Computed example of a mutant assay.
Amino acid sequence: MSDHEEVLARIRQGAFYTESEASFQNGQRRADLVFEYNRTPPGEAGRRRELLEAILGSVGARTVLLPPFHAGFGSNVHIGDDFFGNVNLTFVDDVEIRIGHGVMIAPSVTLTTTGHPIHPGLREDFRRFSEPIVIEDKVWIGSNVVVLPGVRIGYGAVIGAGSVVSRDIPAMTVAVGVPCRVARPITDEDLKARTFPAA
Rank of each mutant, 00 (worst) to 15 (best):
R47I: 09
R194P: 01
I97K: 01
E5W: 07
A175R: 00
G74Q: 02
A175F: 02
F24Y: 15
G14A: 07
V176K: 02
G121M: 08
R12P: 02
I135V: 10
R128A: 13
V87S: 08
L122E: 11
I55K: 03
S108H: 11
I169W: 00
V59A: 12
V109C: 06
G156W: 04
R127S: 13
V77P: 00
E21P: 04
A183N: 07
P197Y: 09
V146L: 00
L51E: 04
G121V: 05
S20E: 15
D94N: 15
R194I: 08
P197A: 15
K192L: 12
D81M: 06
Y37S: 03
N86E: 11
G154E: 02
K192P: 01
T173Y: 05
H70F: 14
R181C: 08
R181K: 15
G46V: 07
L191K: 13
T90V: 14
E36V: 08
G85H: 02
W140G: 09
H119F: 10
A71N: 04
V151P: 00
L52S: 10
R128D: 01
I118M: 12
D125K: 10
F24G: 15
M172S: 09
D81F: 02
D32Q: 14
Q25R: 13
G57D: 06
V182W: 02
A22G: 04
N76E: 14
V145I: 07
T40M: 10
G177E: 02
R62Y: 13
E189K: 11
G115F: 00
E44K: 15
M104Y: 07
F196V: 05
F126G: 11
I141Y: 04
R39T: 10
A193E: 11
R152K: 11
H116L: 05
R127T: 13
H116S: 05
V151T: 02
G115P: 00
E36T: 14
T63P: 03
I105Q: 02
R12L: 10
G85E: 01
F83Y: 14
G72D: 14
G154F: 01
G74F: 00
G102F: 06
H119S: 10
R39E: 12
L8P: 00
E136P: 02
F196R: 07
P68G: 09
S23V: 08
S163P: 04
T173F: 04
R128V: 03
R123S: 07
F84N: 03
P149K: 00
A9Q: 10
P42G: 14
N144D: 08
P42R: 14
D81C: 07
F84W: 13
T112W: 00
R49M: 06
F16T: 12
G74R: 01
G43R: 12
N26W: 11
G160L: 05
R39C: 12
E189Q: 11
R128K: 13
G156M: 05
E6V: 10
R127H: 06
V109F: 07
T187K: 10
T110C: 09
S23E: 12
R167S: 14
